[in-house]
Design a protein around this nucleic acid. Structure first.
Lengths: 222, 222
DNA sequence: GTCTATAACGGGATAGAC
DNA sequence: GTCTATCCCGTTATAGAC
């Protein structure tokens, strides 16, 4: 809504990505947003309130660019060239969605960094947990749905479990990338492999459901 | 070595686990360690230097309790009762080693929290990256070796890739657990499943090498 | 709504005695 | 090696004019 307000939130994401949550200085934020310090306190209760709002803001923005990218996907399709990956429709879409977070583009890096920072902050600041948990659940749900399109016969519980593993892995890889432990290309490769592994795993689940909906074999991996 | 010095490091891990790196106050640390602020600056260059030392300290301590636990493993073996998990020797050892980090015991939680915090800090403080990267490489190496014992014929590169995925996943799950997004039991379940999935995946790799006396069935789920 | 100026204080770092 | 006392800067947050 308000011009200035969103400008402050954009700036907050930028500054957090640059300095981290612990490094965010209200003064620097004010300069970045082109407003005065006092205005920040006028619009947001206090520093923590600002962080909370920034969390949801960053999250909304991520959904937005995910949607944009999905639109682009229809156009680009290099899946034919490489014999490596079985890039059929829904699977490719899933890969795109997850790999989107592992890119060295300014706003993606900004989002990933801010997200990681805010998640880390939530360990010690319970006030941030509400937004965080909600966003996480939604994200897992989305990934589970996409997995469901790749493996329509896999049981719901297995889809959610796979989605939780994939999203948690993505966060882990992202943290390593951003902290300079793991090169970006490696992170992307690991992520792609993991998707393949999980999809293969879900195929196994599919096989289990021989007749109706009831898994007959007591598989060890539930 | 020095009594006081290690006391400070122990206290640092405790305080970081309680307040986070951003919440670590040299004063509080001094109280926790039962020393004066000045002594901390005498033993460690400055705040960052202290953090760097704490990072390696925490890491060494983790190795230590991993070793202790491995010793205990020989005694305890409930693998026979439950038909759920294929807890053969090396596989069980691997599971133990990884699940060790997902336990609600004071010193484990302390280590995990401190490790997560320091990793998060490294995103913005390059001074911390050296220790971090080294520790990470060593850990991946260890897990890869353990995977190698479970799947002796799997190629080295596949073992390392799996190890990287598993350790990154563990960090991701740990972060979610500690930030209150994911219940501990869920995190543990996801981790166990992932190990199963990865081991099954490596079995596939094994099948690829048809010549060297390995069962040729390319079954994904063993 | 938005600014400038300033209060109020927390906390990192050092001096110097013992 | 370890302490007490203190400096002083950076940072959050508010007061009050426009």
């Amino acid at each position: 809504m308000s011009d200035r307000r969103t400008a402050i939130l954009e700036a907050a994401a930028t500054v957090i990505a640059r300095r981290g949550v612990r490094g965010l200085r209200v003064e620097e934020l004010a300069v970045e947003a082109g407003v005065s310090k006092a205005l920040i306190y006028y619009h947001f209760e206090d520093r923590t309130g600002l962080l909370r709002r920034t969390l949801t803001f960053v999250n909304n923005r991520a959904e937005r660019y995910t949607a944009e990218q999905s639109a682009v996907d229809a156009t680009t399709d290099p899946g034919a060239a490489t014999g490596a990956a079985p890039t059929s429709g829904p699977l490719r879409q899933l890969e795109q969605a997850l790999l989107l977070e592992l890119q060295d583009l300014p706003h993606v890096r900004e989002n990933s960094t801010a997200w990681g920072e805010l998640r880390a902050s939530a360990v010690f600041d319970p006030e941030l947990r509400g937004e965080l948990a909600l966003a996480s659940v939604i994200w897992v749900r989305e990934v589970a749905d996409q997995l469901g399109e790749v493996r329509p016969t896999a049981p719901e519980s297995a889809l959610v479990a796979s989605a939780e593993r994939l999203t948690a892995l993505l966060e882990g890889l992202s943290a390593r990338w951003l902290s300079g432990i793991l090169p970006l290309t490696d992170a992307r490769t690991r992520m792609r492999e993991a998707i393949g592994v999980e999809v293969a795993h879900l195929a196994g689940h599919t096989a289990d459901r021989s007749a109706d909906g009831t898994p007959t074999s007591p598989n060890k991996l539930d």
